[in-house]
Amino acid sequence: MPTHDPAVTRGAALVMNRFDLTRRLVSKLHREEAVVAGIGNTNFDLWAAGRRPQNFYMLGSMGLACPIALGVAIAQPGRRVFGVEGDGSILMQLGCLGTIAAAAPKNLAIVIMDNGVYQITGGQETLTARSTDLVAMARGAGIAKAAWAADEADFERRIERALAEDGPWLIGARIDAGPPAAQTERDPAQIRERFMRGLGVRG
């Protein structure tokens, strides 16, 4: 996507639904792409969207979904990797946007689910509810292919581009206060083992 991508501003982006977007993302994945989802509701909805062995569910370590996705992308340059992270979580580890820009993995895309709140801890406002624009921060960090999804169709179009063209990509999605669709089973060792098998690392 050219740097002159006619992307919308955060204010003009449609407020969508996390579970709906997660399902749309997963429905586009036909080549065993890896998906790493952050603490709380992002991984709950990824779990609810289907049990793919290429999904990694992060149950703690708030803020590390994108670094983990970067690590997978570095280890497996032939596989597309998605990191799905909440606004509160990425705000905790903003330096990783610069790390991703500097490492410049062609096969990595980040999706930020921005609801302006720490939903899972009671809906307290995050900085994005006031003044912080995470897509602008990503661009400032050096991720040129960062944009807000204008609506669902635009979100899908951007996912398709991230699957077909060189990244790194960052897609900001404004989302509503809809609850997560399910709760991930919490067995870290099993999650890790299944993921490694899904990535072909373990037989």
Partner: peptide, 26 residues
């Protein structure tokens, strides 16, 4: 070696964790 220099040590832990699951020891 592939060398990555993140802004925080926590990031480095995340990167090595992802890389390990993808088959690379870090």
């Amino acid at each position: 070696f592939t060398v990555v220099s993140p802004a925080r040590e926590e990031e480095a832990v995340g990167i090595c964790t992802g890389a390990w699951m993808g088959g690379t020891l870090g």
